[in-house]
Design a binder for these strands. Structure first.
Lengths: 127, 127
DNA sequence: CTAAAGTGCAACCCACGAGTTGCGTTGTGA
DNA sequence: TCACAACGCAACTCGTGGGTTGCACTTTAG
């Protein structure tokens, strides 16, 4: 993404809420791929870089982004750092989607409630 | 987003799958806001621009993006175009997330399968 | 018929992020 | 102790997307 707002001061999207980070993190295909891989089995940046067409540094950046979104957790052991998935934030995202989707599908609505109570505690998470 | 791949030809993320568009569309806060607003009640670009700190043109672009992701549907009536939400693609996204989340929540997994079969027909949708 | 409102291009600007290279630091193993 | 491996930080490049302005086109209202 990019675009900022030469309009000055407040864009209306001033509040940096948690959901932002999650959606932003999931926006990048490479990051989704990483997340998926790690979900299979925890891995280090170097390992991941070995399986991907990008450098370790690039991987590291993505991992940082995913971590900041709360989707990954670092686990250091000696000189290497192993990452594993902490999917909790996903339910907030799911919750938001269900909110937007409305009752387009009763099942999804149920899903929203469940994931909502799962760790969000309730409604309202973004804008 | 940005970044391309000077690495040449195939990055490993060559396949432009549908999920890409959805996640990409949801990445932008303004777009999420639009989606949310429209989900409340269908609206035209000009209407939306009136409630937002950006120009109508910018709104139009976002609406195009959301439409291409299959999240909106245009409905022309005379000189104005009204958009309303078509949330089906969201279930694919949800399905993907549940896939990554694994069995972090058994209930979510079950529902994810359901919403997956809702219009995905099955598993596997991205990378 | 004409003015105004709503859309639809198209060109342009520029911040930001994905990716890179380079180098310093810290562990590990022989 | 010394070499290698995995990290971490920093600087730099460049493409892309969000946003804007400007103008042409079509429909509605008076």
């Amino acid at each position: 993404m990019s675009g900022r707002s030469p309009a000055g001061a407040d864009n209306g999207v001033t509040q940096r809420d948690p959901a932002d980070a999650v959606f932003e993190a999931l926006a990048d295909p490479m990051r989704r791929r990483l997340l998926q891989t790690i979900s299979g089995s925890p891995a280090t940046a170097t390992e991941l870089a070995g399986e991907l067409p990008i450098t370790r540094q690039a991987v590291a950046k993505h991992l940082t982004a995913l971590s900041q979104a709360g989707l990954l957790e670092r686990e250091r052991s000696g000189r290497d750092v192993r990452y594993h998935v902490t999917p909790a934030p996903l339910s907030r995202a799911v919750s938001w989607m269900a909110d937007v989707g409305g009752q387009w599908d009763e099942r999804l609505a149920r899903l929203a409630q469940i994931s909502g109570t799962a760790d969000t505690g309730g409604r309202r998470l973004s804008d």
